[in-house]
Design a binder for these strands. Structure first.
Lengths: 240, 240
DNA sequence: AAATTAAACGGACCTCGGTCCGGATCGTTA
DNA sequence: TAACGATCCGGACCGAGGTCCGTTTAATTT
């Protein structure tokens, strides 16, 4: 119906189908097999974009402005990054990679070594703090609807949480619980709570640890939980 | 910095500052004190929009198209509804009102009369089902960032959940927990899970009741919950 | 080194959301 | 009913995202 053939053959796959959990470095290592000029322009563009963001904030990152500032045609920007969110995402990529490395292989309590529940706590707090900076960029990069949850970075994060949850609360629909947890860390929500409602970040962090505790608490005889047809199975559809 | 004076004096307040919880009917009753021609055009526009949505889906609702279909100038559309999301929101308004009435004053288990936890369960399931239809419209009406959480409809929903939570789990930062719960019901997430991952709605419903149970479970000695500086107080900042 | 081809380039062009403002209308007051 | 001010109307206009397609260029083959 709408599955248009790629208008640009080699657009930086806005959101490829990275298979499950694994550092998505390889698939995303940028200047890998790019033609020389392409790589050069990519660098120029990213550089220009960063400059613009520094000068005029995320809102100042106009596709035309970036193109101009990089001495490059508008079409080139779209070819490389697909669309605006693609460009912004690429800008955030560096910080993203660092964070992934931290909770996948770094030292405890974020990385492996600590008990799952504790890692969950650390995970959320780290994300909250990371979002506190970068908030404007993250908001601007927020893709509407579809891609939002399909994006590789989010998939990695989600997958990580699922893994930890499976250890902490095996008897649960971890997929769904993970989405709940991740929802709490949604930049849009964080923005609303901190910037619009004026909540201090500490309160959000407390809320997070409390949430983790509640969600991972042993099911100690909930009073009346009628007819729960809990289907905690891996699920039929394409997971994510 | 950006607080522009209203370009249009009488634009249907996209998102007014309705004070706290209360059926926002009064404040929003549409054709109230509108000039005759304005009211007439408002009706025409809404009608045209509905027609377009029926014919071409939510994506077909272009501001220009609506204006044309209603035999009205483009500016008029913006004057009345502020922007695209305002128009879409107005379209969803009817269903919204019905739903609000149902859980605020309707029969149990949705309305008052049942125990809080049970009402919470019903609430989520009802929302899930309501979203299942209307999904495309809701997605299209989704305002980006800012207004997302400031919108009166969402405030009412959120407020309701807060109220129920205060009864069910007095010792908790209900504000935050409510946001968590509402996050689970986010149309974008529902869309992803049902349409993109192919999860059956039933699974989401099970997930909801399970979530409610976990979150409202009595705090029965969580193993090791170190140094939780739980500040469950009404909170300093502007609540929402 | 010349030929070949896949990919990259660039900018004209389109669409759509949103703004502006001169002129038409409504509702009211005298 | 005549005049007046507040409100509304409409469509020209603007900026930004996104597409197209003819041209240029980097890599590979002969």
């Amino acid at each position: 119906m709408s599955a248009a053939l790629p208008p640009f053959p080699h657009t930086e796959e806005p959101f490829g189908r990275t298979e499950l959990l694994q550092l998505d470095t390889a698939a995303h290592e940028p200047n890998a097999c790019l033609r020389a000029d392409a790589a050069r322009n990519r660098a120029r563009l990213l550089d220009a974009a960063a400059r613009l963001v520094a000068e005029h904030g995320a809102a100042g990152v106009t596709m035309e402005a970036v193109a101009a500032a990089a001495n490059v045609g508008k079409g080139t920007v779209f070819r490389r990054f697909g669309d605006r969110t693609g460009l912004l995402t690429a800008l955030l990529d560096h910080s993203e990679k660092k964070f992934q490395a931290a909770f996948l292989g770094g030292p405890p309590p974020l990385g492996p070594g600590a008990p799952p529940v504790e890692r969950l706590r650390a995970f959320g707090c780290a994300m909250l703090r990371r979002s506190a900076e970068q908030l404007d960029l993250q908001l601007a990069a927020e893709p509407s609807a579809d891609r939002r949850f399909a994006s590789p970075p989010l998939r990695v994060l989600h997958g990580h949480v699922v893994l930890l949850l499976r250890q902490a609360v095996p008897d649960a629909d971890t997929e769904l619980v993970a989405h709940t947890l991740m929802g709490y860390l949604n930049p849009v929500l964080i923005h609303h709570l901190t910037r619009q409602c004026g909540m201090p970040l500490e309160r959000l962090e407390d809320g997070w640890t409390d949430l983790v505790d509640r969600v991972t608490a042993p099911a100690c005889s909930t009073p009346a939980a009628p007819a729960r047809r809990t289907s905690a199975a891996p699920a039929p559809g394409v997971n994510s």
